[in-house]
Amino acid sequence: MSLGISLQWQLPSVFRSTRASTAESRTPDVSLSLSTAPFGRALRCSTIPNSSILTGNRATRISSIRCLSALDPNLKSTLDKVVTSQKIVLFMKGTKEFPQCGFSNTVVQILKSLNAPFETINILENEALRQGLKEYSSWPTFPQLYIDGEFFGGCDITVEAYKSGELQELLERTLCS
């Protein structure tokens, strides 16, 4: 089961910017396409609040409401969909095939060893996503593992849960439901 999630960013200046603060102060346009997701159409989140395309979505996930700079409402709403698009979603440095960080690689290897189908999203390709996710998950580092739409933890927690068998149990329950 493979699900194509691609995040395309329309602000190349974010990447050209040499100062992180410049990138964070902008509100990027987010264009997300979930090819085989329940929302089988491209979602385009403009910077206009309450974009009509987004109304009527079935995302009912309630996250704590906070007012933060790097996480604008459109990015938040997009992330709500991404984390529920697949039972297991891993935000990581690099890709499943080529992890670019030891911690990310550890989590990939654990999930692979459990034969769990999972989707990965490379946060190195997108600075705004990277910053926004830190606030979305209230977690300062990557990788970030989502199971069944819930933030599960980073590398240490995943390793710990794998050792104790808790991860296997949770995945079994999640994937069977």
Binding site: F152, G154, I157, E160, A161
Partner: peptide, 8 residues
């Protein structure tokens, strides 16, 4: 507290 909360 759960491990996740402790790490937080």
């Amino acid at each position: 507290k759960r491990l996740l909360e402790r790490h937080r």
